[in-house]
Nucleic acid binder design. Structure first.
Lengths: 208, 208
DNA sequence: AGCCTTTTGTACTAACTGGTATATAATTCG
DNA sequence: CGAATTATATACCAGTTAGTACAAAAGGCT
């Protein structure tokens, strides 16, 4: 049995860690890790620098926390979207979930990972390994879903699953980049629908 | 007849503008606009800050010059690659030209425009409009080449040219992002070959 | 030569950078 | 209550930032 952690000694923190991370993530997302200062982060989170420093070990640590939060909670819900059937509905939901995040209420800011982590990955091994892991995981998940589509009879069995996976991954990345570049959500939706129509047209993904 | 510009009065500049822009571009490419200081730019270009300032009007102007230089001279030679026949060879050359730039001798730094301009586009209208123009031009060029492929008999005439164009553009963007994220050139080549095989497999792009 | 124009190099500034020392406030434990 | 512990807030630091003032240099023009 796990017993509830006995209350910590000393003065209790005046902030909730997740809220701080969330605000920091918003700033990093908008301006990139290099474009945000500790002062701005302090203003936005309400924390003063010493608290930020003791809680996260500095700007790099705070950015890493924001990245982990994105990976665990903020990123598009791939699993949920891909649970749908048939395959076409799953992929449509996948791309729509992308746009929910990339063109959400905060504006057209693209993907936090693709947009900022790649900037930071060059000189931060911890970031680089997370980026690699996320891409690898996405490929694995998509390929598994497409293979299930073949098993379900949603897809012609003679198509190259790896190539199809790459097409979907590439479209995902391109959506993130073009959202960030300012494309309208409706325009981006038009594109992935056109892609799915194309794939469906040459090897119909059946409706059952 | 144009007569040679009479030599300017005053002390002649001790630098060549293009060389300065080239060095600045190298730095911006590696670390992003926000990650480079005027001091670093001064060191790398050999220019002192007042010269940089009078020639480009500050960091933003220098970045814009680097971006324009990339668009005009540094970016992959799309026209040259797409001049080949048949269509498959043209697209192969197009992606190979991408990799020449994205994974060139300077390392895996991706696409200058996709990697850095998107960071800067958010708060710089001049950058945003260039990014939009480049993407639009690339789409136009690719679509025209694919249409020619249909006319040449390289491609089944019933396929959706717009969707095909988007697949190629998406692959181009994804190559840039993944190169930046650290993927090996051979791995990236494997991907676009697999994509072209896939497209060729379902609607053979004839060899003649 | 001597004047004009333009670039160069040094030195400077005021603001900002990430990070920290220190004193104080809030809480638990005894 | 008082001691121990943890967090907060202010003030500070040394280094860096983008940008500038100014005098000297280098060329053309007459």
């Amino acid at each position: 049995m796990e017993q509830k952690e006995s209350r910590r000694r000393g003065r209790p923190p005046a902030y909730k860690r997740e809220e701080v991370v969330e605000q920091a993530q918003r700033l990093f997302w908008k301006s990139g890790p290099a474009g945000v200062s500790l002062d701005e982060l302090g203003d936005a989170t309400g924390l003063h620098k010493p608290s930020l420093y003791s809680a996260f070990g500095g700007k790099a640590g705070l950015y890493l926390a924001a990245l982990d939060s994105y990976i665990e909670r903020g990123a598009p819900d791939v699993q949920g979207a891909l649970a749908r059937v048939p395959l076409r509905a799953a992929l449509e939901a996948f791309f729509e979930a992308d746009l929910d995040v990339f063109c959400g209420p905060e504006g057209r800011r693209g993907c936090f990972l693709i947009g900022t982590a790649i900037e930071a990955a060059a000189d931060n091994a911890a970031v680089a390994s997370r980026v690699a892991a996320v891409f690898a995981g996405l490929r694995r998940t998509l390929r598994a879903r497409i293979e299930r589509g073949v098993a379900d009879g949603d897809l012609r069995p003679d198509l190259d699953v790896d190539a199809l996976t790459e097409i979907i991954v590439s479209a995902h990345i391109a959506l993130a980049v073009e959202a960030r570049a300012g494309s309208e959500r409706t325009e981006l939706r038009r594109r992935f629908v056109s892609l799915l129509d194309f794939l469906g047209g040459l090897a119909p993904l059946s409706e059952a």
